[in-house]
């Protein structure tokens, strides 16, 4: 996308019109990120999981979130639910292993919270960690921003 944007702004200056420069999606500093675009916030033995701003931006309007049952065992990299947008279905993978202790029931009636507040009100599940050493397999905010940039430029 980087190349194309440069080209687009050249074309735009030639055509004397303004270009909308897409801001890079936001990340939150203290979270950890999976390359499948989920985030995890760890507090002691409890981990809150959601999808990133980058992911919700690419998905578009979220219209349904399929939540797991409380008590379900999840594993790092394994799917536990799905996000449905107007245009697509995407599986959600767990960035950590453990047991689901809480799900965000609010998303049943307001799935669009995943778009409007991906890192706060749009959280999806809370997991009781079974192996906190797995966190080292995840990216920090800086690495994840770079990862998204690279992925977008490949596209």
């Amino acid at each position: 996308m980087a190349c194309r944007q440069l080209w687009a702004s050249r074309a735009a200056s030639y055509l004397r019109i303004s270009v909308f420069n897409r801001a890079f999606s936001s990340v939150v500093k203290d979270l950890k990120y999976a390359d499948s675009h989920e985030w995890v916030k760890v507090d002691g033995n409890s981990a809150t999981v959601g999808i990133t701003d980058h992911a919700q931006d690419h998905l578009g309007d979220v219209v349904y979130v399929e939540l797991p049952e409380v008590g379900t065992e999840v594993t790092q990299g394994g799917g536990f639910g799905a996000v449905e947008s107007v245009k697509a279905t995407s599986d959600i993978n767990s960035p950590v292993s453990g047991k689901v202790v809480e799900v965000n029931e609010e998303l049943n009636s307001s799935p669009a919270k995943v778009n409007s507040s991906p890192y706060e009100d749009g959280w999806i599940i809370k997991v009781e960690l079974s192996d906190s050493s797995e966190l080292s397999n995840l990216m920090d905010s800086e690495q994840y921003s770079k990862f998204c940039e690279e992925e977008d430029s490949k596209h």
Partner: peptide, 10 residues
């Protein structure tokens, strides 16, 4: 066809 990016979520 349209989902080259989002499909990569998985």
């Amino acid at each position: 066809l349209g989902q080259s990016i989002t499909r990569r979520l998985t």
